[in-house]
Nucleic acid binder design. Sequence first.
DNA 1: GACATGCCTGACAACGTTGTCAGGCATCGA
DNA 2: TCGATGCCTGACAACGTTGTCAGGCATGTC
Lengths: 350, 350
Amino acid sequence: MSVNGNVEFPTRTRPTMREVAALSGTSLKTVSRVMNNEAGVTPALVAKVKQAALTLNYQPNFTASSLRRNDGKTNTIGVLLEDIANPFSAALHRAIEEVARARGVAVFAGSVDEDESREQELAAAFISRRVDGLIIVPAGHDQSYLKIEKQSGTPMVFVDRPPALLDADSVLTANFEGAKAGVEHLINHGHRRIAYLGDLETITTAVDRFSGYKDALDRAGIAFDESIVQMNLRASVDAEHVTSKILASPNPPTAIFASQNLISVGVMQALHRFGLQYSVALVGFDDVPMVELIEPGLTALVQNISGLGKAAAEMLFARIDGTNAATEHRVLDVVLRERGSGEIPGPHEK
Amino acid sequence: MSVNGNVEFPTRTRPTMREVAALSGTSLKTVSRVMNNEAGVTPALVAKVKQAALTLNYQPNFTASSLRRNDGKTNTIGVLLEDIANPFSAALHRAIEEVARARGVAVFAGSVDEDESREQELAAAFISRRVDGLIIVPAGHDQSYLKIEKQSGTPMVFVDRPPALLDADSVLTANFEGAKAGVEHLINHGHRRIAYLGDLETITTAVDRFSGYKDALDRAGIAFDESIVQMNLRASVDAEHVTSKILASPNPPTAIFASQNLISVGVMQALHRFGLQYSVALVGFDDVPMVELIEPGLTALVQNISGLGKAAAEMLFARIDGTNAATEHRVLDVVLRERGSGEIPGPHEK
DNA sequence: GACATGCCTGACAACGTTGTCAGGCATCGA
DNA sequence: TCGATGCCTGACAACGTTGTCAGGCATGTC
């Protein structure tokens, strides 16, 4: 359906400070002073200039201003996310926006989609627009292409995944420790046969979580069993399929660790289909949206996503403000939220 | 936890075309020509310039370029969303990004949070950075403040909600027709006592959906009953509370229409708590994430969110490219997805 | 050989703004 | 009354780039 409205007015050209100066009978420079609230302009002149600006509906051109100003700041930052639309990226983005807003900084954002070349293109696009800094969730395995850019004075902070082949600030989640704590939680509830379903092995967070799983097994003296481990899962349907296969095998696990929320969803679907949701324990990394509606609730390792974004933005702005300290690597803790699925007892419960 | 890395190198100042010209022994203008792939430069010179640019790691300054160029385009657009982090906004944002990316356009985004003044601030921030156009999900009830900006030549397209007191392009969802179809679906399944839980009455989409509900009742000859209608709900807990109250009342409804996904969640929680999820029918506007896991599945009116974003971006770029046609108002259809909750029969089933 | 033609190249101005600096004017003290 | 002081104001250059235009050189034509 399509309805037509009125034809628009012909467009006038946008007024500049020069025109405001002409209308108010003063000079360009005085207009500049008034617009920047600089002290030392006669009140009468200030009023005249403001009136003229209002009459012409003058809108300052911030890009021209930052080109000329000594600090050269554009009051703009760029954020490279995995995918703007996924809940993790969106929450991160929001937390960054919050900090930026308080400083009058506008935020460019883009999706990298786990694509190395897309990462470089986006970074280049933001750099050519002279952002004051970059916050990056990297996809590729080599960020050395940013080395010269960093030396040229563009601060950058990496979030969720560390930079590779580049020395730069980062804010990460305790993936290893979190996964380990999750698996230990299952062990403490009497499980010794624990399946692991993981994400792409090219993603460092996935690798760290897997290491946490193995470490927990090691410390409990449980042998690693390949037959109940599956990496490189992406969609929840894949996880559902793998879970079904594992549950139907001769020696099925009594508990499952899901390394990521989409995987948790797939596992939950398979468990529900088999009617095993109250007999096979499940701990997942990352919360699942609307999880409150499902029974039993998902016991999950919850990341502090807004904490990641807030910390990254604050570190970035500190650099933008000129801090020249050594590279900083911050790690945020993960919280185990018990909701039922992870507390189902196993055969070895004490 | 915090680990220190190496101290960074002292920052060099970023090279300009002037320096590239000096190093390659040519003129500023020739460098400009090479960088813009203009024809008519000797291949030997092109090579020398490119080599020099590489050596200095020259990065073009797009903002300076757009200041000088005749078209004045910044190849940048601004998007005003309700809240970057909510799934609707994020999906919209993503669809817009997709279209922009194909054109080499960078996207500013910001959250308005249903706050009128925040809307104006964000718009001003983007305008002062001279975006080529704006895509807006408005919060306020008067967009006339954008009138002069529109006349100054900044194209703008409104999404999800129409502009008020301003003539501008828009892309909306068929809220009235969708809600009406959803209520009629319940009526067709034998329901005549249908509760309505709605969003803020200040939001036009909420008002339109409510009108659709009333129209469907009217046409079926069902009297409107205030006691099972509640507007101005925002959080899912509010919806849960109201649902519980209505279900416990002397003459409870046999079906419920939820005007929005958070409200659907609240209703579902209440139904599950009362054990009524298989006896009271429910149709909701908007999908609920991870809805596949819940039984019975939510029958929902699904919006074409990416269609909204894609259409808005395409309309915007058409304007940016100079199309001067009459204002266009596009409306996208809603699809009723049957998943069980809406097909529970009522007492008047034929 | 003289001249016209066309292709490359670079000098200069300009985009809209702010930094620098000098000049004008009023005020103050002697 | 005169000079010194300080406050306002505006002329000019500059940020990094592209548009305009003129000049230089080689080639082609008669």
